[in-house]
């Protein structure tokens, strides 16, 4: 496995992350006993954290700097988790099912934030929500039973009813 040409599969986790990988885990995993601001501060790796960028992109989170992260709503926690990964200039962002368990309106907000983030850093997004995929993804990879069954552009997958039925097992959706 390589990142930017260097092998990373033998490295311990924190070393991989230090090379410029941001991670937004499934279930958010914010530190509930810390404040929002502390969550962000903890994530700062280098000397030039992108604080203004985060302020601009996540005004709500910025306003709640002093609030204990455990008291945030699910959607806010997701935003915090995303902001945490954007604090540094990463080479890659790994985002795992960010819309899981969120209300539709919040899903939209997360989608907007992700789209903004995608302008600054490549994102490897694991998602099951097809609407989000359609809106955000350029290229997609479909896994089934641990094996790759399709790679190509998002449009190629989602516009093809046959493929949607075969790979995703759902009736074709309306755009």
């Amino acid at each position: 496995m390589r990142l930017g040409g260097d092998r990373i599969d033998r490295l311990p986790t924190h070393r991989i992350v230090q090379r410029g990988v941001g991670y937004v885990p499934e279930d958010r995993e914010v530190f509930g006993s810390l404040s929002v601001g502390e969550n962000l501060r903890l994530a700062e790796r280098d000397d030039t954290p992108r604080r203004e960028f985060i302020e601009r992109l996540f005004p709500d989170i910025h306003a709640r700097r002093a609030q204990r992260a455990g008291t945030l709503s699910g959607g806010q926690q997701q935003m915090l988790s995303l902001a945490r990964a954007l604090v540094n200039e990463n080479r890659l962002l790994l985002v795992d099912e960010p819309t899981k368990g969120l209300a539709p309106k919040i899903v939209d907000e997360v989608g907007v934030a992700l789209a903004e983030a995608a302008k600054t850093v490549p994102i490897l997004l694991v998602e099951q929500n097809l609407h989000v995929i359609r809106r955000l993804a350029e290229r997609v990879v479909v896994l089934s039973g641990g094996r790759v069954v399709f790679t190509g552009s998002a449009a190629d997958l989602l516009d093809d009813e046959d493929r949607v039925q075969r790979y995703l097992g759902v009736p074709p959706m309306s755009p």
């Binding site: 986790t13 991670y23 530190f31 903890l42």
Partner: peptide, 12 residues
């Protein structure tokens, strides 16, 4: 609170 997440933030 969550040791593995700390590691996932690049901290040893």
């Amino acid at each position: 609170e969550n040791r593995s997440m700390v590691t996932a933030l690049g901290i040893d």
